[in-house]
Simulated assay, not measured.
Amino acid sequence: MAQPTPQHDLDRAAGIEVTDTFEPFAQRNDIFTRAFWDPAVRTARTDAFFASYRMEASPRRGDGFSQRDFALRNASWLISDIMTDRFAEDGRREGFQAAISADTPVAPVQMEIDDKRDMSREIKKIARFFKADLCGITAIDPRWHYSSRVDVRDLSDAPNDLPDDLTSVIVLGHEMDAELVDTYPAATGGAATGRAYSQEAATVMQLAAYIRNLGYEAVPSMNDTALVIPYALKAGLGEYARNQMVITPEFGPRLRFSKIFTSLPLAHDTPKPRGVRAFCDICTKCAEACPVKALPFGPPEVGGNNVSALKGVRKWTSDAEKCFGFWAKLASDCAICMRVCPFNRDFSRWSQRLWLRLALSPLRRLALWLDRNRGGRTKPSDWWSAP
């Protein structure tokens, strides 16, 4: 009988179950890229969805979908958009379909690292200085790297290359504005997403520049290059949930994640399972609230039937076509599943930390019952009129 490997033990601690049918994911098959080339996904609505980010499509009428609401959402994306579009003519939509190019050369002299643990503490301090809300570090794991990236000029597969000497992945979490999240699925909610992306673009590039100035390779990355959720789980930042998000003890699901691949000698964090899986086993609030029923109700299953699903991993998997189809209908992103999640709370308050302890304990059913009347939507007009 084969003995479990250290990699297997780390997977298990992170709540990751990889099967013999596992295949690395080709980024061309993610639902957003498919919206440009796959006739099963691309429609007039999807074209209007992307055009709305340039105000080329007329905003819908109604609370949360006015010109002002779309203006806020689109402005929130500005910094991310500027960074992303720099090399689009070369086929690289950086941060989404390609890793972010280095704006700083690697210093010719390496700073000597005496203690990896001290260096990891320093990196986390600098990450906070550059406005990351969470930071964890884990070993590089090529299983989660895209088998190919996308050349955006013709949407063909392109090599997903990284330098050979990279050893660690720094995973950064960026909180989304709680008040705007409560307005989902309005365009105002989309502003919470865009602002987090713009912040992470700045943070990940600045932290990578710091590392390169120390004399070590650092490749900043957002949605590109690799799946970030497995890395966030293995870096100990949170646990995977039914709503396809990472639940963190600090912010629940209300985060975006970025990452840096680096050769800097660093100590690695370990997964910290606390009991989110057991809570999600009895909670289906996100699946019930999804307007198009794109989220699963049952236990985790081995995915792979859907083109946009990761093959050979036992987990909760959404119906990407249903989900994105609803986004296209709205002309904005939807995160109702984030808004209604029982873990979407302000854990800076002692009462909410007490609820968290209940939720992650054998008293989880009591915590779920206490959550029965939460998760209501804030009207976007109320957000605008608030002092």
Rank of each mutant, 00 (worst) to 15 (best):
A98V: 00
A98L: 02
A98E: 10
A98H: 15
A98D: 13
A98M: 00
A99V: 10
A99S: 13
A99R: 09
I100F: 04
I100D: 10
S101F: 09
S101R: 12
A102K: 12
A102F: 02
D103R: 10
D103V: 10
D103H: 05
T104L: 00
T104Y: 03
P105D: 07
P105K: 00
V106L: 01
A107D: 13
A107F: 01
A107K: 03
A107Y: 00
P108R: 05
P108V: 02
V109L: 11
V109E: 15
V109C: 05
V109A: 13
Q110V: 05
Q110I: 00
Q110W: 00
M111V: 14
M111I: 12
E112Q: 14
I113A: 09
I113T: 08
I113K: 01
D114I: 03
D114G: 14
D114L: 13
D114A: 15
D115T: 08
D115V: 04
D115I: 09
D115N: 15
K116H: 12
K116D: 13
K116S: 10
K116P: 10
R117A: 14
R117C: 12
R117Y: 07
D118E: 15
D118K: 13
D118P: 00
D118R: 13
M119L: 10
M119C: 12
S120N: 06
S120Q: 10
S120W: 08
S120F: 02
R121P: 00
R121A: 14
E122I: 01
E122G: 07
E122K: 06
I123F: 04
K125C: 07
I126Q: 10
I126H: 01
I126M: 12
A127W: 08
A127P: 10
A127Q: 09
A127L: 06
A127R: 03
R128F: 05
R128M: 01
R128A: 13
R128T: 11
F129H: 11
F129V: 06
F129C: 09
F130T: 11
F130Y: 15
F130W: 09
F130P: 03
F130S: 03
F130M: 07
K131Q: 14
K131T: 14
K131N: 14
A132V: 02
A132L: 04
A132H: 12
D133T: 09
C135Q: 09
C135Y: 00
C135K: 04
C135S: 14
G136F: 07
G136S: 11
G136I: 06
G136H: 06
G136Y: 05
I137H: 10
I137Y: 05
I137Q: 08
T138A: 01
T138H: 07
T138E: 07
A139P: 01
I140G: 02
I140K: 13
D141C: 05
D141G: 03
P142Q: 06
P142A: 04
P142N: 08
P142M: 01
